[in-house]
Amino acid sequence: MWKTILRRLLIIIPEIIALSILVFLLAKAMPGDPFTGSINPHASLAHIHHLMRINGLYDPWYQQYWNWVVHLFHGNLGMSYEYQEPVTRIVGERAINTLWLAVFATVMTYAIGLPVGLYAGRHQNSRSDHAIRIYTYVTLSVPFFVVLVLGLWIFGYMLGWFPTTGSINTNAAPGMGSVISRIQHIVLPGLLQAFFSLTGIVQYLRSEVIDATHSDYVRTARSKGVPVRDVFRHHIFRNSLLPITATAGYAITGLLGGSVFTETIFSYPGMGLLFVSAINYRDYTVITALVLLFGFLNMLGTLLSDIIMAAVDPRIRIE
C-alpha cells in the first residue's frame, strides 16, 4: 500500500509540470498587459514597452517559464503586479482567511447534512421527508448568488445581525477579540454556503439509505430477528455513509479553493476573491501560483479520497 501511495505521489510531479506549462501559456495568451491600467494613464507606449521588457515579458515563453521555475524552487513566486507584494505573502494571508470560512462551512455542511440525509432516507415519504425534498429542490433551482445576496440583505443589512464585508474588524482587540471578530465575519457566509452545499449530501445520503433499505443483506439481517432500529444502526447507516467519506478527500482540498461567489458578494478577502481579481488585473504571477496550487490540491484530494476509500471499504485494496 505504501508503495502505491508513493508511486501516486511521484506521478503527481510530471502532472504538475504539464499543468504548470499549460497554465503559464494560458496566462500569457490572455489579451492585455499588467501595466496599462496601473500606471499613469499619460505614460507613453514606449514606457509600457520598456516596463514589459525589463520585467522579461518579451522573452520567449520557455525562457520566461524557466525563470519562473527557477524562482519557484527558491520559494519565490514573484511579485504581484497588482499589489506590489510577494505572491507567497498575499496567497498566504488569503489562504488563512479562506481556511477559516471553509472549515466552518464544511463542518456545518456535514454536521447538518449527515443527520438530515439519514433521517430523510429512514423516514421516506414522511412529512419531514417531503419538507426536506422541497428544500433540496429549491436550493437546486435557485442560483447560489441569489441566496447569498438575499441572505446578506436580510441578516446583514435589515436585521444587522452580522457584519456584511471583510474578514475581521480592523479595530478588534488583539487576542480573543480578533478571534471573536473573525467568527462574527464567517458565520453568515459560512452558514449560507453550508445550506447550499448540504443539498448534495442530503440527496445522496437519502437515496443511499433507501437503496440499502431494500437490499438483500438488510433482508438477511431482518430475518435474523434484528429489530428494525438496529438494522438501521448496524447495517444501513454504516453502509450508506461509506461513499460520503470518500468525498471527504475532495472536501479537504476544497477548503483552500475558496468560493468565488461567497467571497465576492461578502467582499471576503479569500482565495476566491483573489483569483477573480488576479484575472481581472492580469496579475500573471498570482494567477499561475493559484492555478498551480489548486491543481496540486486537486491531485492530492483524489489520492486522499482513494486512500480513505481503501481504508473504510474492505472490497477496495490499494495494491
Binding site: S215, D216, Y217, R219, T220, A221, S223, G225, H235, R238, N239, L242, D313, P314, R315
Partner: peptide, 17 residues
C-alpha cells in the same frame, strides 16, 4: 431463532462491509 431463512444470491445477501 425459530425460523431461519436462506436466500438466493449469497453475495448480495451478505453485508459487504
Amino acid at each position: 431463532a425459530k425460523i431461519g431463512m436462506i436466500f438466493q444470491d449469497p453475495l448480495s445477501a451478505l453485508n459487504p462491509l
